[in-house]
Design a protein around this nucleic acid. Structure first.
Lengths: 140, 140
DNA sequence: TCTAGGGTCTGTAGCTGGTACAGGCTCAAG
DNA sequence: CTTGAGCCTGTACCAGCTACAGACCCTAGA
């Protein structure tokens, strides 16, 4: 299947989705909220992507995998796009995010501790008395 | 300020919010989604609560603090309301939740590890080269 | 040549767990 | 009699997507 008009294979939205593993609709969403740029359109109004779009989307996805919010991703991209970003600036954003990740871990560990020690008291029997329910009912 | 019609103090939505620390609007939300029961209404259509509503809302809030989803809360409440709940059933729900808490902790720890080891390579200087950006750009 | 199936386009609704606000009513104090 | 507080309702908004309807467009096979 040869494209008669261009020697370079044109990427459409579905191609970008497959190349990156990103959901098709999410690509449009990222464009709407301004983290992906508006790509040029074909004569039939189809979005036309190239390698730089692939790279950008992968960047976004990696940042999301590391738990950066889309707002934080926007900040990272602004630094990168600005061209004059410094290691210090990026480090600042990453450290702020790292702090929030650590806070979430601490929260979950506290929860894990309460839950596991409560569940450990369960008989697991067919009896109505249950330490978990008691803990939830407990007067503060 | 004495209530001339009843000897027992009637709780309204604002009172329930204050007693439990729950947001005023959240109480209505919980009623809409069916985790709080529809309370009786006064002649002027005001919701009228009593001690059992206070207890139930506290139960819900404790379960939420432990990270149970509202769906899980509904399940717990159904068991409790059924009257015939057994320790084994409750333990099952709690263990399922515990597993998802542990999975989240594992995810976040992985993220924490990647982030912290990457940030550790930063010079923090006014230079454009940054290991964090490199990691995000990295070809998989 | 016709047709069936895929892709793409747009706007919009849905999800979770709330939060908030507008516009209207009621009630008590000053 | 007015003012403020509380309550009522429905609805919109947040993140971060995901999905669907209804309209195009295009290609391959019969």
């Amino acid at each position: 299947m040869i494209n008669h008009h261009r020697s370079v294979k044109v990427l459409r939205r579905g191609d970008l989705a497959k190349l990156t593993g990103c959901n098709l609709e999410t690509i449009r969403y990222y464009e709407n909220i301004g983290v992906m740029p508006e790509p040029p359109r074909s004569s039939k109004n189809y979005r036309v992507y190239d390698d730089r779009h692939v790279a950008r989307l992968r960047f976004i996805m990696r940042a999301r995998e590391l738990g950066f919010t889309l707002d934080e991703v926007r900040d990272l991209l602004a630094l990168v796009d600005g061209g004059a970003q410094t290691c210090g600036e990026v480090q600042g954003l990453a450290n702020a995010h790292l702090a929030s990740v650590r806070a979430k871990i601490a929260d979950l560990k506290r929860i894990e501790h309460v839950l596991s020690s409560t569940v450990a008291q369960c008989s697991g029997d067919d009896v109505p008395e249950c330490p978990v329910i008691d803990a939830l009912r407990e007067e503060a």
